[in-house]
Design a protein around this nucleic acid. Structure first.
Lengths: 208, 208
DNA sequence: AAGCAACTGTTTATTAATTAACAGATCAAA
DNA sequence: TTTGATCTGTTAATTAATAAACAGTTGCTT
């Protein structure tokens, strides 16, 4: 199977997030119409996405088996081995999410870097807190490849340099300064752009 | 001029963020090749975007006048009147960004809601801190239409309900539970999806 | 003032993504 | 066992987005 497009990967991630809740609710099957209602994607898009990853319905009248679909998506999205990630610039909501809500055995938050002292509320033996000063050395010694960067824009570039220099290969950049790199993978989630986009479409669609 | 596509709006926001730094650096002109290098978009895409909003180069040999381009983008992206926004679930980096880095006279952070007590570091007379208990009443009395939702997934839906009920017309959802609404504008910036996407492409592009 | 170089503005072509359409398979009910 | 409703899997059509191509204009240089 070849590489999938960015949009397909996004949707697969989204389907799985929904299905994991479904699974807990003892719903054994799901069809494309139901998924369409939950996701906003059309039925055809969903079936096509599943076709691309070789996920087939075994019971054509009831739709897809939730467990099967999750397994198929797991095979595509989960890294081969444990991926240790770090959060640079604290955010209680993210920390809580990554530690307690995101139960993916293949991806785990192992370090949080901040200026502040330790926040006792979020301490586990498999997750440690560090001061910014320890950034380079800790990233290197823990062999962290993927980092969520959540610092004010004034620190974005210098922090990114430290990270790349310490061996990081992917940055999810939540800071308001756009990062661009050919050497590593960068995903910019720019809050300023999000606000301006929201304002624009709220104006046009006359929600306001 | 008609409504622009989501991608064009995103790029315009991005161009402006770059140009505002350019402007400070006393660079009077910029051409599409330079912008292309900074943004990753092709020259043609950039020229086409600018054409769409009626932004023209007055000096065809030097490229676009930075000031003019910013003015053109302002006209398209900035709301007619002051847009008061709120941050629900604190995040020091975002608060700092929105208060001190994002100097847009048309969009202003006026309220932060959190469980914690006041963080003295971020207090200004035009921005106030509130407890979650005050969410509904404060949103309504301050007439806030756009909110950044930054809470753990367990609280996403109930908080969104309160917000919508209080008159909010747009939510930028940073929590790990997808929101979908036909009544209001929703922009999901899902950190779980971002992580899974990054892992996927890092694997395929062999950055790891 | 003539010629050249640089960069835009716009049209046309190409590629990507989404939606529509429908044949085929299978389960359920009568 | 037959009929029919339902939902998939896949191909074809449409739409959206990007990239290429190039004519046209202007300023700079000689």
């Amino acid at each position: 199977m070849g590489i999938l497009s960015s949009k397909v990967v996004e949707r697969l991630s989204f389907y799985r997030q929904l299905l994991l809740k479904y699974d807990n609710a003892q719903q054994s099957h799901v069809n494309s119409a139901q998924l369409s209602r939950l996701t906003g994607a059309t039925q055809e898009t969903i079936r096509r996405d599943l076709m691309l990853i070789g996920c087939q319905s075994l019971n054509i009248r009831k739709g897809y088996l939730v467990k099967d679909m999750v397994d198929c998506i797991n095979k595509v999205l989960d890294p081969f081995e444990l991926s240790r990630i770090a959060l640079v610039g604290d955010n209680d909501a993210f920390t809580e999410t990554l530690l307690y809500e995101y139960e993916n055995r293949h991806i785990r938050l192992v370090a949080v870097f901040d200026f502040d002292t330790v926040n006792e509320a979020f301490c586990r033996n498999d997750m440690q807190r560090f001061h910014f000063d320890e950034l380079h050395d800790t990233i290197r010694s823990l062999d962290i490849r993927l980092v969520i960067l959540n610092v004010p824009g004034a620190f974005t570039c210098q922090t990114a340099d430290i990270l790349i220099n310490a061996g990081v290969k992917g940055i999810i950049n939540l800071s308001p300064v756009h990062l661009e790199s050919k050497a590593i993978y960068v995903e910019n989630l720019n809050i300023i752009t999000a606000i301006e986009k929201a304002s624009y479409f709220m104006k046009w669609r006359q929600y306001v």
